[in-house]
Amino acid sequence: MKYYVRAELLKKSFPSHDRSSGEYVVFENLSLGLKKGEFTTCIGHSGCGKSTILNIFAGLEKPTQGGSFVGNRSIDRPGLDRAVVFQNHSLLPWLSTLKNVMFAVRARWPEWSGAEVEKHSRRYLKLVGLEGSVSRKPFQLSGGMRQRVGIARAFAIKADLLLMDEPFGALDALTRGVIQDELIRLWSKTDQTVFMITHDIDEAILLSDRILLMTNGPKATVAESVVIDIPRPRDRATIIHHPNYYPIRNHLVEFLVKRSKQLSPEAGTDSCSADQVKDKPSLIFPPEVRPQQETTTSVPEAAH
């Protein structure tokens, strides 16, 4: 099995706001896969359905059609094997920073003593640079600090699959860098699979093994799976000098500026239109793309 985590022929639709048009389809026949131990990022315009996909992986949302899997287990509910960093940094407002992390750690390892739980939690808070604010309540923290608590909480439970929805969105460049480094360090020591949503192209290139590009909604699709051919460890200062860096970056920018719109089924140039007329669409994962210095080769991927 090539992909460890898979979304297969997902459809998500909502009842339409105006009664006439039936339903609002966020995406349809959407398939994507994450390889075990890989760091995958997802990029796309606001509202295209990134968070929805992440929530389906988390088990917090149910797709209208299709299924998602971790290994060969179908995802039907949330679980401790998947840690989530929420887009809106959901913290329990009545608990202190430390207690918020401990809350998750205790749930993960109920057999641990209180002291163990606290020690473990403090360690992760220190990783995100919050050792000085452990007893503050969320409302006493800045947006970035809250986001870091959420990250510490997700890291701390050492889940198999780490799902992060714009985790560094609210951070300043310096802090962001530090935590990115920490994230990579932690990730490389384990074989955690990471799925992260971001709007920051440079961040995506720095962190990812692959980047999934989503077209605009409605009826969004994952158009390409861009493989980042830059060896690790990567350094933020020197990575731009890698010959593949700019080809990749230009490819991404071009996608976001032009093709994400053109590829959208609403725009008429629907790449998947052939599949959609069929009764039972076949499972096709997004094609892999490797932007390189000289030429761009694409190797289409077929399922199983």
Binding site: A58, G59, L60, R77, P78, G79, L80, R82, A83, V84, F86, N88, S90, L92, W94, L95, F103, A104, A107, R108, I157
Partner: peptide
Amino acid sequence: VKRDYINIARTLELSKFRTALTVILPAAA
């Protein structure tokens, strides 16, 4: 009670009873 708070409990696989006690109760207190 905010859906988000309950989602936290769900991702942590808390039982219904524990969710009620440790999330819903303090949230609604």
